[in-house]
Design a protein around this nucleic acid. Structure first.
Lengths: 338, 338
DNA sequence: ACCTGCTATGTAATCGATTACACCGAAGCA
DNA sequence: TGCTTCGGTGTAATCGATTACATAGCAGGT
């Protein structure tokens, strides 16, 4: 009575055919006659058979899964990227498995578990802080990889990104147009490529507009709400304060504004704030966030499409970069200075 | 020169031992002599060998992975639950793979792909809206399952939950203590068990306090920011409005408050709002959200611990329920009525 | 000298599905 | 009638690692 889970042989026996035929009936129905197919499905129902995915994967040398490496699922920024990925992957027959890499990273082997080509057919990496040498050392066993949003400098993997530098410049120019002449910047962590490119765009715009670059007005955060609040405390401690602040993420912008409100400062009355990302909460924050919009769903969809092309061996093998434009969304958090 | 990826036989050949010995050197080093072990690792390095996870999984009849089914990764509520799961699963040697079930659900087969026992060794389900009959019909091939936060009524799976009914009652009593006598409720979707239990707690508290239950003051949402904003519009259209509103999620509370502010209403001056969940944005919202705190990390950790016990065959086979208490966090969004 | 027990290793079966190849019979064609 | 073609099916090899079982070698005890 303790019969184990039935396998394809059991089904074959019940249906009175060979296991090869059962396999064909399942994955390539047109190869078997109508009568046989019917008998097979009947046997499947009778035995309660379900295919063993591990065995199929081993034999086929593919898993039908895409793994997405996310640096921090707590950041709502990523949810639409993931939606875009799913939107493309599901119709193409791929399951999407998400892994939070949780910085600071666990030990190398643990990360590598996820990178290995026998776990997934392809990898979408949203975390630009994975150790580069790990990726290069294990390149031989890596499945196709596409980076999205973030990337690793100096490594050549295909990627889907936005024009971070231009986005930052748009934010700064907007503050300038509103009349701000003293502009600060709340940055992400310095190790992050996004931080570097957005900083670059910010400084370039400042220079272009003939505005001063004041190092004390450039505060480091880590994209989180909490770090935005901390930046606000440092801003408050400044002897001379900028009247316009460009935050490298909406989350930091919210934290920044929130912390200021606790000491009676109001945005945009006392300081103008421009965010980055255009996440949903920005629209509902009080004041509603003026921000730089990223086409997140499109980014995810494009990354998935590129990856799947590569998995299927279509598309060039050459490394490619897709860069999306960003745009300003004007809401309430930035206004002319008093 | 187009040698394929090396397998354990190749390593064995290079090391001058049998594949069994290589296998032992890898997964049970103490079974092999020092000299042999060294030779094996040298051969591994030389050949660039990496274990084939699919083959190992097939043979071992386990995957070393736990799959977590999340109804909507866009809701930042889940991130700390996931952190708690990871915190327990990683040290126990399990990889955590996250799947967004994306309501409304895709077709049954697609969901089932994730449920199958040859994909993961265990399942943590945070989505209480999976079709019950699917789970029951496929019970034979389901790996161990633990529900967390949400669950399916009438099904007996182990679960880790909070006292939703008590939480709702605490929220209502708090509004009552502040002096509110007209209390409304922004609910989740009616199909959700959380909605039902929280509604139950709300009505029980109302009754206990001798306050009226006014059906028009009970507005349906779906836990999202957007739906909170919609509820606010309906609240504004009310002929007679409650002065205190208990929202079944912090996200809806934020959306609700935000929408009101657009028409010049201020919280808590014009209406008091209590949220539920205590997600991070609540602390940084303006006004900071008074809410019901859930020990999210603990919930995740406990669910993972229960699941792993079951996977390892320890712990009773009996279905069990773990219920965590919740508590009120007083901040700025609820105050005495004018 | 012989038996026991233990360590280190090899041999070969095994996990379960897929698929290359072979084969059979029926239909099509000359 | 004899030959070809082809749809449908079975046989058996295969994917790559694990592990039950067998065995060789060596130390220790009597």
């Amino acid at each position: 009575m303790d019969k184990k889970t039935p396998n394809i042989q059991d089904v074959a026996r019940v249906a009175g055919v060979s296991s090869a035929t059962v396999s064909r009936a399942i994955s390539n129905p047109s190869m078997v006659s109508d009568a046989t197919r019917e008998a097979v499905f009947e046997a499947i129902a009778k035995t309660g058979y379900h295919i063993n995915i591990m065995a199929r994967n081993l034999r086929r040398q593919r898993t039908g899964a895409i793994v997405v490496l996310v640096p921090n699922l707590g950041n709502p920024f990523f949810s639409l990227i993931l939606a875009g990925i799913e939107q493309v992957a599901a119709p193409a027959g791929f399951s999407v498995l998400i892994v939070d890499t949780r910085q600071p990273h666990a030990d190398e082997n643990q990360i590598f578990t996820y990178l290995h080509n026998t776990r997934a057919d392809g990898l979408i990496i949203l975390d630009g802080t994975l150790p580069q040498d790990l990726l290069e050392r294990r390149a031989a066993v890596l499945p196709p990889v596409v980076f999205a949003c973030e990337w690793i400098e100096g490594s050549d993997f295909s990627r889907v990104v936005i024009d971070n530098s231009a986005g930052a410049a748009i934010a700064v120019r907007h503050l300038h147009e509103l009349g701000h002449r003293h502009i600060g910047h709340v940055m992400g962590p310095m190790a992050n490529v996004l931080t570097k490119t957005r900083l670059h765009g910010t400084r370039a715009a400042l220079e272009e507009l003939g505005l001063p670059f004041v190092p004390e007005w450039f505060l480091t955060g880590d994209f989180s709400l909490q770090s935005g609040a901390e930046a606000a405390r440092r801003w408050l401690a400044l002897e001379k304060r900028p009247t316009g602040v460009f935050c490298a993420s909406d989350q930091m912008a919210c934290g920044f504004i929130s912390e200021l409100s606790k000491v009676g400062f109001s945005v945009p009355r006392d300081v103008s704030v421009v965010g980055f990302d255009d996440i949903e909460i920005g629209r509902h924050f009080i004041p509603a966030l003026t921000t730089i919009h990223q086409p997140r769903r499109k980014i995810g969809a494009k990354a998935a499409a590129m990856l799947i092309d590569r998995i299927n061996g279509e598309g060039s093998v050459a490394v490619s970069e897709e860069k999306f434009a960003v745009r300003l969304v004007m809401r309430q958090s930035a206004a002319p200075p008093l």
